[in-house]
């Protein structure tokens, strides 16, 4: 951690920023969603409502699903952030089993809600080896899908659990 500076660990890589209002600097009023998308070019994280209601902007902060639209970047100094871009194998490019399951189940139409959903499922399966359907629904209750892919998502989560054997 640095004075007047900011260290973010995003998807295993460290990024340093100056805190300020100049170009490329992170202002105290910037949200994590904005920094990820506009400064780091990680546009996999979506911003839907920008006010905490839809879950599209969900990322993992120290492994826990949080809303990046309601998180200030300056408050993530020294913290680990995982976004959808961080799930595939960096060397082989192979998708994470959760991503693969969403593909195989066709668990989206437009795909806008998908990165957020996948991050939540990733955290859920990290905490619980075999969540019940109720637990899966509860974990995903903060994600809106306007394309009504919810049933396919449940199928995808079941598939992801299956993949782990």
């Amino acid at each position: 951690m640095k004075e007047n500076g900011l260290l973010l660990m995003v998807n295993g890589q460290s990024y340093e920023f100056k805190i300020g209002t100049g170009p490329g600097e992170v202002s105290p009023s910037h949200t994590l969603a904005r920094t990820l998308r506009e400064d780091l070019g990680l546009t996999g994280t979506k911003v839907g409502c920008n006010k905490g209601e839809c879950g599209a902007c969900t990322v993992l902060l120290e492994g826990t699903p949080v809303l990046s639209c309601l998180t200030l970047t300056v408050e993530c100094n020294g913290k680990r952030v995982t976004t959808i871009e961080g799930l595939e194998d960096p060397e082989t490019g192979e998708l994470d089993p959760v991503q693969q399951s969403f593909l195989e189940s066709g668990a989206f139409q437009c795909g806008f809600c998908t990165p957020g959903m996948i991050m939540t499922v990733k955290a859920l399966l990290g905490d619980m080896p075999a969540p019940t359907e109720l637990e899966i629904k509860e974990a995903l209750s903060g994600h809106y899908c306007r394309c009504i892919s919810h049933y396919h998502v449940l199928d995808a989560v079941g598939r992801a659990i299956g993949k782990r054997g």
Binding site: G52, T58, T64, V66, L67, S141, G142
Partner: peptide
Amino acid sequence: VGTPQLRNM
């Protein structure tokens, strides 16, 4: 309250 992500925060 709210949603799981909100309750985490």
